[in-house]
Write a protein that binds this DNA or RNA. Sequence first.
RNA 1: GACCCUAUCGUCUAGCCUGGUCUAGGACAAGAGCUUUUCAAGCUCUCGACACCGGUUCGAAUCCGGUUAGGGUCACCA
Length: 424
Amino acid sequence: MVKVRFAPSPTGYLHIGGGRTALFNWLYAMSKGGKFVLRIEDTDVARSKKEYLDEILDSLTWLGFKWDELYFQSQRFDIYRDYAAKLLAEGLAYKDGEAVIFKVIPEKIKIMDQIHGEIEFDTGLIKDQVLIKSDLSPTYNFACVIDDASMGITHIIRGDDHISNTPKQLILYKAMEFPVPEFAHLPLIMGTEGGRLSKRTGATAISDYRNMGYLPQALVNYLLLLGWSPGGNQELIDINEAIKKFDIRDVNKTAAAFNMEKLNWVNAEYIRKLSPEKLLEELKPLLIQKQIVSNDFDSNYLLKVVKLFQQRIYTLQEFCEFSGFFFRDDFEITPEAEKRLTTKDCSKEFGLLIEKFKALENFDHASIEQAFRSLVAELQIKAGELVHPVRAALTGKTIGPGLFELIEVLGKPRTEQRLRKFIR
RNA sequence: GACCCUAUCGUCUAGCCUGGUCUAGGACAAGAGCUUUUCAAGCUCUCGACACCGGUUCGAAUCCGGUUAGGGUCACCA
């Protein structure tokens, strides 16, 4: 039975790299019908924070990675100390004050990495390893080996940055006579300009992406593409399909640069694929949180607005930014829109348009367009000459959904009221 | 500095294991056009890569070696 683990340390938020490591672990477990263990590596009591733990758990849940077992290293100190005592008794380790140090014997050891192939190390280059620190807490490599072995972890899937920890852990596996698991070292994710992914090059926390309005499925799809490809020129892949197609050996060896533009594209694709009702569901908490609408807001109206923007947003956040004029009358007018309204006085045209609209029985976009076009014909002007100022007056912007659809949703009274503001 | 990992369009990648079908395919981005009331979307097209040197071979993006470049690790942090 395949068993993998994701072992974050609650000394910071779950970042993009950690999220992807979790993804590949979870995906591997799912593809093999195995178990996914979550182990919190909180041996550094001083730096570990409850706040971070909660955030990590939330982010993993949001991404959709359910864990089968949950452990905390801080609750297992006795186990580590027992093993240290055993190694001490066997003469494989020695004491230095309260600390327990493992004696490293020089030798050549190899691992067969699932992604990189064979990697050879010379332990002669490694100094003696601290097992138990002076404060009696275990070191990372020691606790990690004992946990992976005692939890029955069969495959260790982790970042490339752990390659150099592998020989240190391997000698401990041997010393404690634990069976050695399979290893797979994932390439790291780098920032857009190369180098480490850092806050300077963009958001790094999974929760940041959640707040910016990315859908978890989209983020997972994008992260999956960073180092793995389903083949067949496929870019968008449902997680269930990925589970079927995934093979750890197909994961790339090369570090990949995080590219926000492609993430945006993937997110937009997922937004478009959603039914408007489902999209509204995703949007609603955000709209309430940002106090754009109240909890009991007319969802019929909301749904109409959602439909107008579904095709033109990359993130949920953008919906909030673009659709403001549908929810309040004191919306801002951009300088470009201002120009459309001041270059030419449209009082006469707006007045006539209001009259046309008043005569309409059905205020649907087809009728609105018909009325609009007949006025334009009567005035002998081009449609664009009136479209732009009207859009500016109604929305405060020069860009947005189709004008007639937009007017239909806005409704007759509000359309009239907004046009009147610009009649002198 | 030592050790380790890696190297295909600007970016993500397919191809590499099992050399010929690769004048290297796709996606994002960029540019042009179509459509159009704007912005998107959609459609069509363009730009654009096998890091370098050597070897093996009839033949190398694919195998081997070196160079260079990038990344990682060298804690009583995890």
